[in-house]
């Protein structure tokens, strides 16, 4: 069990909490992960960073003490729609790494798979982008330049020249995190996701009234956190909508009301389009199944 994929471990941990087990800590409930049986030599050879983290940040020695653990959000499984060379549906735009969805992960990310994501698909995207750039015809009026200036202007107007506002970026972000953890966390339900969609709408409303104190053009991190929060809210909405529409459980998406996987209906990628200001549009695309057929995970 300890070596199972993270979604299964997370559900097991949450189940322990719900059954009243675990310890109460300053940051919520937690369990003990015990690696003491490995011994100092194996730990120093194979888990030196875990030992350092324990020593430096928690004040424990994992050779002698159990490690306090609880599930957290770790990774964004979806991302910008890209093929295996990193090309997106928009000609000339390439994506790689955690921001991209090249189809490596499916409904779950296995441990250490970020390495191929960065190194293998990063290299592939770099090569493909260079090839595209060298083969593309030179244009007199660069459309990217125009888009860039439009975006710069949008940011100026929306944030830097913005007057008034009474909502703090940090407060909205924290509430968003809390709502996402509650509604779209380890276990999900129809009611929970519906509430989440509604609450995210409220946060979006509040976001339009944010206060920006920093008008500097130099290393303005308040501006970048505002832009980031805008994107995070959009992403949260995307996650909530697709999770609500998926009446099944698959990988890290665990619906209490639909615990089984339904390949007939949902062996598909969810694609969300935010083209207009209105409601995002949800579409599906079939998954190309190659040598390995989806099977039940029985361990």
């Amino acid at each position: 069990m300890e070596l199972g994929p993270r979604d299964i471990i997370s559900r097991a941990m949450m189940t322990e909490f719900e059954e009243g087990h675990g310890f109460e800590g300053p940051h919520g409930k937690y369990l003990h992960l015990d690696v003491r049986h490995l011994g100092e030599d194996v730990i120093d050879r194979k888990l030196p960073f875990m030992r350092e983290l324990g020593r430096e940040f928690v004040g424990i020695d994992i050779v002698k003490d159990p490690i306090p653990v609880r599930p957290v959000q770790h990774y964004m499984m979806g991302g910008i729609d890209a093929d295996i060379s990193g090309a997106t549906p928009m000609a000339g735009l390439y994506a790689a790494g955690e921001c991209a969805n090249v189809g490596l992960n499916g409904a779950n990310r296995l441990g250490s798979n970020s390495l191929p994501e960065c190194l293998v698909f990063g290299a592939a995207a770099g090569r493909a982008a260079a090839e595209y750039a060298s083969s593309a015809k030179p244009v007199t009026a660069n459309p990217v330049d125009a888009i860039l200036w439009d975006e710069a202007r949008r940011v100026e107007v929306a944030y830097l020249e913005k007057k008034g506002g009474d909502e703090r970026i940090g407060a909205i972000r924290e509430e968003m995190q809390h709502e996402m953890d509650t509604g779209a966390g380890v276990f999900r339900t129809k009611e929970g996701l519906e509430t989440l969609v509604e609450r995210l709408g409220g946060l979006r409303q509040r976001f339009s009234r944010i206060k920006i104190e920093d008008s500097s053009r130099t290393f303005n991190t308040e501006l970048t956190s505002a832009i980031e929060l805008d994107f995070m809210l959009e992403l949260s909405q995307t996650i909530a909508l697709t999770a609500l529409a998926r009446d099944e459980s698959r990988g890290a998406h665990a619906r209490r009301d639909f615990p089984e996987r339904n390949d007939e209906k949902y062996l598909k990628h969810s694609l969300v389009f935010h083209r207009d200001a209105g409601k995002p549009r949800l579409e599906y695309r079939d998954v190309r199944v190659g040598n390995f057929k989806p099977q039940a995970r029985t361990y």
């Binding site: 703090r168 970026i169 940090g170 308040e222």
Partner: peptide
């Protein structure tokens, strides 16, 4: 940054 002064970088 989040509660007192958002301009601290």
């Amino acid at each position: 940054k989040s509660e007192v002064d958002g301009s601290l970088s």
